[in-house]
Deep mutational scan, measured.
Amino acid sequence: TTFEIRVGDLRITLHNADEEEIRWAEEALRRGIHADEILRTLEERRR
């Protein structure tokens, strides 16, 4: 599944994310964390 998060002009697309990952990514985007860093962190958490 694919889920797109939008916060203002910012956007990130997550693939195969669970609800916790989606909530975490949305909050991180709101705090101004760059999408590349969010994706990198999620990848590390999945390992």
Rank of each mutant, 00 (worst) to 15 (best):
E37A: 03
T41K: 10
R40E: 14
L29Y: 06
E43V: 07
L42V: 07
G8W: 03
A25C: 04
D18N: 11
E26M: 11
D18A: 09
L39E: 07
R46A: 04
E21W: 02
R23F: 06
L29Q: 02
T13Q: 06
E43L: 10
E43P: 00
L42D: 00
L10Q: 15
E20W: 10
I38Q: 00
I12P: 01
D18L: 04
R46H: 10
L14K: 00
E20M: 08
R31E: 11
F3P: 02
E43H: 06
R11H: 15
I38L: 07
H34F: 10
I22W: 05
W24C: 06
E27Q: 10
R40L: 14
R45S: 11
T2M: 12
E37C: 05
R31Q: 10
I33A: 07
R47F: 15
E4C: 09
R23Q: 11
A35T: 11
L10V: 15
R30V: 10
A28N: 07
R47N: 15
I22R: 08
T13K: 11
H15E: 13
L39I: 15
E43R: 04
T13P: 05
L29C: 04
I22V: 06
V7M: 05
R31V: 09
A28G: 07
T13R: 04
N16Y: 07
R31C: 09
R40I: 12
I38M: 06
D18F: 13
R30Q: 12
I12F: 10
H34C: 07
E27I: 06
W24A: 02
G32N: 07
E27A: 12
N16E: 07
L39D: 02
R6Q: 14
I22E: 02
D9S: 13
L14T: 01
T1W: 13
E44G: 03
A25D: 00
A35W: 05
T2C: 13
E26K: 14
E26L: 06
I5K: 01
H15P: 06
R23G: 10
R23A: 11
R11L: 11
R47I: 15
D18E: 05
E44P: 00
E19A: 12
E43A: 06
T1E: 12
A28V: 03
G8Q: 04
E20D: 10
I12T: 02
N16D: 12
G8D: 06
T2W: 15
V7G: 02
E44W: 05
E20F: 08
G32Y: 02
A28M: 08
A25Y: 02
E43N: 04
G8H: 04
R11K: 15
E37G: 03
I12L: 15
E4Y: 04
H34K: 09
E21R: 00
I5A: 02
I33M: 15
R23L: 13
V7N: 06
D9V: 06
T41Q: 13
T1A: 13
H15C: 04
F3H: 14
I38C: 00
R45C: 04
E19P: 11
A28H: 05
E43I: 09
R6L: 14
I33Q: 05
G32I: 00
I5F: 03
A25P: 00
R46P: 02
A28C: 09
T41L: 12
D9A: 08
I5L: 07
F3D: 09
D36Q: 07
R47G: 15
R30T: 14
E19L: 06
I12V: 13
E44C: 01
E20T: 12
R6S: 15
L14N: 00
T1V: 12
R11S: 15
T13C: 03
V7I: 14
T13G: 03
E4Q: 04
T2L: 11
E37P: 01
L39A: 04
N16G: 09
A25I: 08
D36N: 08
D36Y: 13
T13L: 09
N16I: 05
L39R: 05
E44K: 03
T2D: 12
I12D: 02
T41S: 09
L29P: 00
H34G: 14
I38W: 00
V7A: 04
E27R: 08
T13A: 04
A17I: 07
I5Y: 02
I5P: 01
D9H: 13
I5V: 10
H15L: 09
L29S: 03
I38A: 01
L14Q: 00
V7L: 09
R31A: 14
V7Y: 14
I12Q: 02
V7F: 12
E19Y: 12
R30D: 05
I33R: 08
I12A: 02
R6V: 14
G8T: 02
G32S: 02
R31S: 13
R47P: 08
T13Y: 06
L42W: 02
R45E: 06
L39N: 05
G8S: 03
F3T: 15
E20P: 07
R47T: 15
A35F: 10
I38Y: 01
D9P: 08
R23M: 12
D18G: 05
A17W: 04
I5G: 01
H15A: 08
I12C: 04
F3I: 14
E37H: 10
E4R: 01
R31D: 13
A17E: 02
L14G: 01
E21S: 04
E26I: 10
I38D: 00
D9M: 06
R31I: 14
T41F: 12
D36P: 11
H34N: 14
D18C: 08
R30F: 11
A35L: 07
H34L: 12
T13H: 10
T1I: 15
N16S: 06
R47M: 15
E19G: 09
E21A: 04
L39C: 15
L29G: 03
A25T: 07
T1G: 13
E21Q: 03
R46S: 03
T41P: 00
R45G: 11
G32P: 00
G8A: 04
R46T: 02
L29N: 03
E27S: 12
R47S: 14
D9L: 02
E26S: 08
G8E: 08
L42F: 05
R6G: 08
G32D: 03
E21K: 00
L10A: 11
H15Y: 14
I22P: 00
A28I: 02
A17T: 11
R40N: 11
R46G: 03
L39Q: 08
R46M: 03
R31W: 09
I38G: 00
F3Q: 14
I22T: 06
R45P: 01
E44Y: 04
R31K: 13
A28P: 00
N16K: 05
R40F: 14
W24G: 00
T41M: 11
A25V: 14
T1L: 14
N16F: 07
V7K: 02
L42N: 00
E27K: 09
D18T: 13
R40T: 13
